[in-house]
C-alpha cells in the first residue's frame, strides 16, 4: 500500500486537488482510503465517502498540534487502511505550523500552494515546503505572469529538489503527473520516521503557563534582542 500526505495552508485547494487524484486513481482501478486531520472542523471525509464510496476517517487534533496528531495516529491509520485492503492511503492535513512538516520517509509528501498568496509565501512556509516531494501550485490564472514566475522561482530557491506542478483544480488539468508520482511511490513500511526535525524543546506555554514575557518562563526561552541565543536548557 502506498502513502501520500498532503499539506498546505487553508483554502489553497488541497481538497479540490485530492478529489481529482482520487477520481483518477479509482479510474485506474486503485482502491483508495482517505484520512483527514484537522484542528476543529472538516467534512471532506463525508464528501469523499459519498462521492467515491471509499473508506474515510477524520481526526480532530483539538488542542494538539495537527502535525503532532499526525505522528500519533498515522500508525493506526496505516493498519486501518491495510485492513480495508486499500492500495493507496491519502492523508490530508491542515498545515498550520510553519516550523514542522507532516511528511514521513516512505510516503509521498505533497504541498498545495496557491499562486494568489503572494510572491513571498514560498519563503515563509519552511519545512512544509522544503521537505515536500512535490509542490502543487493552484489558481495560476489569477495572478500576473510576473508573480507566477517569481512564485515558482522562489519555490525553487527554497526547495531546489521539489518538483513543481501547476494545476487547474477546476478542470483537473495537470493532475495526471501527481497520480503518476503516487503510483511510482514504494509501498509504505510497517515502521516509518518523520522526515523533518521537530521544533526544539518542551515548552512551558504548551504545559499551560500563560504569562507574557520570557522572564516568566524557563527551559527554552528567547528575548526580542539576541535572536539566535537560546537561554536556559
Amino acid at each position: 500500500m502506498k502513502l501520500a500526505i498532503c499539506a498546505g495552508p487553508a483554502t489553497t485547494g488541497k481538497t479540490a486537488v485530492l478529489r481529482h487524484i482520487i477520481r483518477k486513481l479509482q479510474d485506474s482501478g486503485q482502491r483508495v482510503a482517505f484520512l483527514k486531520i484537522d484542528v476543529q472542523y472538516a467534512e471532506e471525509d463525508e464528501q469523499f465517502a459519498r462521492e467515491f464510496g471509499i473508506p474515510t476517517r477524520k481526526v480532530y487534533s483539538g488542542e494538539l498540534c495537527p502535525d503532532h496528531c499526525n505522528v500519533m495516529v498515522l500508525g493506526d491509520a496505516l493498519q486501518w487502511a491495510r485492513k480495508a485492503e486499500s492500495d493507496v492511503l491519502l492523508v490530508e492535513t491542515a498545515g498550520l505550523c510553519l516550523r514542522c512538516s507532516p511528511y514521513v520517509d516512505g510516503g509521498l509528501g505533497l504541498i498545495v500552494l496557491e499562486a494568489t498568496s503572494g510572491m513571498n509565501l514560498p519563503l515563509k512556509v519552511g519545512p512544509m515546503l522544503s521537505l515536500a516531494d512535490v509542490a502543487v501550485v493552484t489558481k495560476i490564472d489569477r495572478v500576473s505572469q510576473a508573480e507566477r514566475e517569481v512564485f515558482r522561482a522562489r519555490i525553487q530557491d527554497v526547495a531546489p529538489g521539489v518538483r513543481i506542478r501547476e494545476v487547474n483544480a477546476l478542470y483537473g488539468i495537470g493532475i495526471d503527473p501527481l497520480v503518476d508520482h503516487i503510483r511510482a511511490q514504494a509501498d509504505a513500511e510497517e515502521s516509518m520516521l518523520l522526515r523533518g526535525n521537530p521544533p526544539v524543546g518542551t515548552c512551558t506555554i504548551c504545559v499551560g503557563k500563560k504569562e507574557i514575557g520570557w522572564q516568566s518562563h524557563f527551559g527554552v526561552v528567547r528575548a526580542l534582542d539576541n535572536q539566535t541565543f537560546y537561554r536556559g536548557e
Binding site: D141, V143, S144, Q145, Q156
Partner: peptide
C-alpha cells in the same frame, strides 16, 4: 519557470503585489 514559453493575461489576471 524560465523555460515556459507561454505568457497568459486573462480577464481575471491582476497584480497582487
Amino acid at each position: 519557470p524560465a523555460r515556459n514559453p507561454i505568457a497568459l493575461i486573462t480577464q481575471h489576471t491582476t497584480f497582487l503585489s
